[in-house]
Design a protein around this nucleic acid. Structure first.
Lengths: 238, 238
DNA sequence: CTTCTTAGTGACAATTAGACACTAAGAAGT
DNA sequence: ACTTCTTAGTGTCTAATTGTCACTAAGAAG
């Protein structure tokens, strides 16, 4: 093992390089369920299958891999998600039938209403309820990626209020709690949840109310409007 | 934006691809301090500077990117670390003077004694106290990578006992606590620390003792001997 | 003005974490 | 032998956090 090539040590053309792609797992919350954005592939390989929004990194135009991932997402939804951060990278010989490939995966969150206008007008981009998505035969290893992304979001539902980025700008605490319950997979004590929210001091009471059957609920919004992955770590503990 | 190339849509040769590398931040604990393994570069670019152990992914021989990273580590230390998992990926136009490049970064932990034999015999591989390493002018963006890796380890010191993989097979609770204190940056209450350890049930009392000035301390070892990144998540909560 | 529904709070119990003094077990000096 | 020094490990009280659940609040609908 560990033989070095004799030639081309500094000329990169001498190496054969793997295909480099990005993929994003974009979540939203709509109609009491957690949804993930999938795109139907129009080109080889895996044509026709649904997969994650993403594509090949274009080193001519993209400054960095985040830009690539964001660009691909904007192409599909027409808007930039307010929350976006790196999940993991997967690179091996078997995940793409074309051979060696590497994908850098991001998770993103967006309010359903903020991209529904665009998503509903095209047929190859669609929100899927997460359980449905996991039952489908997705392209490449995208099913596993969705599983990882959900697990990451589950952790965040336990220790942060970042899932709030999947809600509309103004939301009620009950909505946020229900979303957290979906992610964690079990119900949360209302009192504990609200205490945690309060201590985090990351929500602002807008003063407005919204009614939905019973007593009107206060509408809150997140203090930090937009969140790129560089800032995520600081808020994780909250 | 988002123009598609007209040709070569399915032939990958039509794309110019970024350089793909891996880097590892290998930590150990030795002589009451946290150390990181650095390698002095022998080739262009950045010749002579110290940087992280890593290198270009070889798609001819490596099955996946983890193998590449492990292979590079083994080349430098002659042993596989018992703890190894992915940290993040960085890809942009500016990090390597040769142009667009992407690196997938791993963090790893190993007992100092398990690789000292090999490391001490070569001059281009060396352990550096982490504060020293951060004062140096490292190659590429490796200083930032070391900072990220330390921050990740800091989180782990707070919520898990994974840092134990940086210790010898058998270690005392005082050693483990001191390591955690180094990572967190402040002292920990002995009683709280030990309670946490006990509840995690991830340590085994070997029955042996070791003396170091005062009362002999019980020697423990980790229940899970080796830990690749696939299994890390399950233990994080402990 | 009663009932239904969802929002939000009060208050006590149970659990966990912090603080710190205390006991334990050895080495080394007198 | 006994005192002192050093580090290991525990007992125990207090403080803080979290869980539980019943209660009050504010509207709609009948």
């Amino acid at each position: 093992m560990s033989k070095k090539r004799k030639a081309g040590k500094r000329g990169r053309k001498a190496f054969s390089l793997p295909l480099l792609t990005v993929d994003s797992v974009l979540f939203t919350y709509h109609e009491k369920s957690l949804k993930v954005l999938l795109v139907q592939r129009s080109s080889e390989p895996e044509t026709g299958k649904w997969g994650l929004p993403g594509g090949i990194v274009d080193i001519e135009t993209d400054k960095d891999i985040e830009s690539t991932a964001l660009r691909k997402l904007v192409e599909k939804t027409s808007v930039e998600p307010p929350f976006f951060d790196q999940l993991e990278s997967i690179g091996n010989q078997t995940r793409d039938p074309r051979g060696w490939s590497v994908t850098v995966v991001y998770t993103a969150l967006i309010a359903h209403q903020n991209c529904e206008q665009h998503v509903s007008t095209v047929s190859d981009v669609q929100w899927f309820e997460i359980e449905e998505a996991l039952k489908m035969k997705l392209a490449f290893d995208h099913r596993n990626i969705v599983l990882s992304a959900r697990e990451r979001m589950r952790q965040r539902a336990l220790y942060s209020i970042l899932p709030g980025y999947a809600l509309a700008e103004k939301f009620t605490l009950s909505e946020l709690q229900h979303l957290h319950e979906l992610l964690i997979g079990k119900s949360i004590q209302k009192r504990s949840f609200r205490r945690r929210i309060e201590q985090a001091e990351l929500l602002v009471d807008t003063g407005e109310k919204r009614q939905e059957g019973g007593r009107p609920a206060a509408l809150y919004r997140l203090k930090n409007v937009s969140m790129t992955h560089r800032f995520v770590r600081n808020l994780e503990a909250s």
